[in-house]
Design a protein around this nucleic acid. Structure first.
Lengths: 221, 221
DNA sequence: GCGGTGTTTTAGCCTGGGCTAAATTACGGA
DNA sequence: TCCGTAATTTAGCCCAGGCTAAAACACCGC
C-alpha cells in the first residue's frame, strides 16, 4: 500500500491542493500546469493512478481523489508542511526558501523522523505560511474561504495564510509585513483587475498596491 | 557538472568507499554486491560513468575514480556523514539508525542546508561512528589503517571508528561500549578465525568475544 | 600451451516517467 | 443542429536503471 514513488506522491498532493482551491473534479491541464509537465504526461499518470484505485478518472472530464488517494496526499502534505516549519525554526531557512527545500525532502522523510520533528516542534497546526498541517490521522482545521482580492474597500481583516509556491511573491509579502496573523485594511482598489491598495496595521504610514495575482494568494479570516 | 541522479551518486560513493578499504581498482562484483545490484547492472553503469569522465573503466579489470568522480563521491560522503551527525545530535536518532536515514537524505540535501547543518554542528570532523567528514574542498584527515582484528594479544588501543552499514553489529558494539574514543584491550584470541576476546576499559569486569566480521569492522588508532 | 572455473560483459528485455504529434471529444455560438 | 476551438487522449518515442541468460575473457593448474 505505501511505497509510492516521488512522482506518484507529487501528483496526488497536487490533486488535493487543486481540489481545495478549484474544486473537484480536477482538469488534466490544470494538473499538468501545476506539475510542470505536458498534458499528455498527466493523462498517462492519471490512468495509472486510477488503476491503482487512488483516484477516479472520468475520461475527458477530469479526476477526483478516492479516499485511498486522499490519504496518501494528506501524508505528503503533512510531510511538506512539517518540514517547512522545521526548516524555518530549527535551521533558520528564510520564508521564501522553505517551500523548495521541503518539496524534495517530503518524499524521503521516514515515519520516524516525521514523528521526531513533529514532537520537537510541539505538534504544530500550521506551517510558516499559515497553511494547516494535517494530523497523522488525516484531519485538518477548517479553512477560511475568502481571498484578500475578494474583499470590499474599508474591510479590515486578519491574514490567515499565503500561497507558498512563488518565492518572489513571498519575498514581497514579507517585506510588506503581510504574513499570517497580520491585520490588513483595504483602502481602495483600481478598476477591473487593477491593483488593490492595502495598509498593514503595524506600518500605518505605508500603502501597498497588490496585483490581482498577489491579492489572490493571500487568504484572510 | 552537478545534477547527478541518486543512482550515479550511489555508485560513485561506493566506489570511493571500496577504493579506501580494498584498494583500487574496484572489481565489478564487489561494487555490485555493495549496492545490492546484479553485476550486469554494475557493468552497465560503469560504462556510463566512464563515458561521463567520472571514472576509468578497464574492461574485465576493474574501475578507478577520476578526480572528477572522486570530487562528487566526497561531496556525497560529506552529506551522508554530516546528516548522520545531525540526526543523532539534533533529533536524537539512535546510533544504529542514522545510517539508513542518511542514505536517502544525502541525495537531496541542498548546498544551503548542508552549510547550515555544518555550521550548527560546529563544522564537525567525524560522524557518530568515527568516520571523518570530508571538508568542502574535499580533503580529509589521515585514517588509521589498523583493524581491531589485526592486533596482538596484550595490546591496548583507542577505538577510532566502526563500520556503519550493519545496524545489528552497531547495536552490539554500542551495548559493549565499543565506540569512538573508548579504550580497548586485547585479552586473547581463539584459534584461526575464532573469536577475539577484548575488555573495554570503562567496564573492566566484562570480557567480550568478537567474531572476525565484527573485529574487522572496528578500526583503532 | 590447454582447459576449466569464475568473473565480466553483451544482448535483449522491462518499468517508470517523461516528451511530441496526431487523433478525438466537449462545448459554445451561429 | 452544426462547426470551430480548446481540452484531452492516443500513439509512438526516449532515457535511466534495473533484470536474466548467454557469450567472452582472465587466470590458474597441469
Amino acid at each position: 500500500m505505501p511505497n509510492h514513488t516521488a512522482a506518484v506522491q507529487d501528483y496526488l498532493k497536487t490533486m488535493q491542493l487543486l481540489e481545495w482551491d478549484r474544486g473537484a473534479p480536477v482538469a488534466t491541464q490544470e494538473l499538468a500546469e501545476r506539475l510542470g509537465v505536458s498534458p499528455a504526461s498527466a493523462t498517462n499518470m492519471l490512468k495509472r493512478l486510477a488503476s491503482l484505485g487512488l483516484l477516479d478518472h472520468e475520461p475527458y472530464r477530469g479526476a477526483t481523489l478516492t479516499p485511498a488517494g486522499r490519504k496518501v496526499a494528506l501524508e505528503v502534505i503533512r510531510h511538506h508542511r512539517l518540514l517547512e516549519t522545521y526548516l524555518a525554526e530549527a535551521l533558520g531557512v528564510p520564508w521564501d526558501r522553505v517551500h523548495d527545500e521541503a518539496e524534495v525532502l517530503e518524499h524521503v522523510l521516514s515515519e520516524d523522523l516525521e514523528d521526531r520533528i513533529a514532537a520537537l516542534l510541539g505538534e504544530p497546526e500550521a506551517d510558516p505560511h499559515g497553511h494547516p498541517i494535517p494530523s497523522k490521522d488525516g484531519r485538518l482545521p477548517r479553512l477560511s474561504a475568502r481571498r484578500l482580492w475578494d474583499l470590499a474597500e474599508g474591510e479590515v481583516v486578519s491574514v490567515q495564510r499565503v500561497s507558498d509556491h512563488e518565492a518572489a511573491a513571498l519575498r514581497f509579502l514579507a517585506s510588506a509585513g503581510i504574513k499570517p496573523g497580520a491585520m490588513v485594511a483595504i483602502v481602495g482598489r483600481g478598476p477591473l483587475a487593477g491593483p488593490l491598495f492595502v495598509r498593514v496595521e503595524d506600518v500605518p504610514d505605508e500603502v501597498h498596491a497588490l496585483s490581482k495575482d498577489l491579492a489572490e494568494a493571500v487568504w484572510v479570516a
